[in-house]
Design a protein around this nucleic acid. Sequence first.
DNA 1: GCAGGGTGTTACCTCGGGTAACATCGAGGG
DNA 2: CCCTCGATGTTACCCGAGGTAACACCCTGC
Lengths: 217, 217
Amino acid sequence: MSTPAAAPAGEPRREQLLNAADRVVQREGPGASMNAIAAEAGITKPILYRHFGDRNGLIGALTERHTAGLLAAVRAALSEPLERRDQVEHVIDTYLAAIESRPQVYRLLTHPEPGDPTGAGNALAPALRQIAEEITRAVQTQVDLGADTPLLSEAWGRAITGMVLAAGDWWLEQKPCPRPRMVQALADLLWGRLAAAAALPPVVAPPAAEPDAPEET
Amino acid sequence: MSTPAAAPAGEPRREQLLNAADRVVQREGPGASMNAIAAEAGITKPILYRHFGDRNGLIGALTERHTAGLLAAVRAALSEPLERRDQVEHVIDTYLAAIESRPQVYRLLTHPEPGDPTGAGNALAPALRQIAEEITRAVQTQVDLGADTPLLSEAWGRAITGMVLAAGDWWLEQKPCPRPRMVQALADLLWGRLAAAAALPPVVAPPAAEPDAPEET
DNA sequence: GCAGGGTGTTACCTCGGGTAACATCGAGGG
DNA sequence: CCCTCGATGTTACCCGAGGTAACACCCTGC
């Protein structure tokens, strides 16, 4: 139609394919086959490969779409001028809200196919690596950690990301509590509530009259 | 030989196959093919399938072996009568030491093949789920969290596991610091150092005389 | 009218998980 | 002594999924 030369403002066909892929992933989860995606789009495999090169290309493109939204939301949450505790809660809540709204899609973002023996075995998918980097940057610019800043901000970026990932995954599956409470629980952990809580009395020596077989292993 | 009836004290053949699989995984990482493992054992595929059913069975058996050691180490660290901070550091150090000693094997433990659409998309591999459960139990029995205990202990078990997993993976790849320092960094995070640290002054409006192109995105 | 690029197809290759069917060998038991 | 049984082993195959080659179509624009 009006597309005069190269690609003025977006390629609708490619978008259309991504939409189809999106639908399939939403329905079948990651690991959906290329055949399935092609079928959903009403076409056959080679077209997909022409557009995206290989499966990684497709998944990558699909991922990038959603990553953009998630990353933007997290970034926004990270740069809001809130009290630190409120900010942390806001960031966690943003992430949990995202994975709650479209679980399959965010599973795709967060649990990539491992078949990538090139680099190494990153625990964090690209999308999460970017989030970790955002957190790192936020810590660097907002928190005074003295000479430890470079190391701690990087380590903590990964650590916090992994923490929220694992806890979020569990929460998503079990839904043991409403979201705000989960946010509280995680923020509490970061706020040293584990460190500060009182100790329970150690289990006293078992009553002498009950010879429970003590498992050793 | 002396094996009179069924399986007196262990089937050496099966062990042998697992040893071969271990070697291959150690060399090629997870995702090693069944053919490769069979070849390493000097046999062919069907034998592997007779012994282990399918790939999951093999990997599962292989995993269980190493899991036992890691889990026992973590459990031991969790039940030592240390000051809480020392205990947490000890547990983290135990985990990091393990992944450091045989990275490929522990990658196998910690980054399972995802092709498991049955249950759901657990972020944590079985071995790590078990560790998370140990942490949960330890928190439940050692820390007084009042009425929040059931939720917090479970959530924190997953959260801490995920945190150490992600941070450990990064550390293993980058080796940005010696292990004890990494342990410190993670324990500090759990001890609320992020929460307690002073704030850096917010970035003041850029000096008017320097029109640096402000990236918006 | 014809060149060229995007869209589409069928048919094929490769590789990895998984299986069927057949061969072998040593240990008992009639 | 032979024969069965169970474990070990093999070759040869099936299937599904990623990936590719070669060919067909249609529309645009010189």
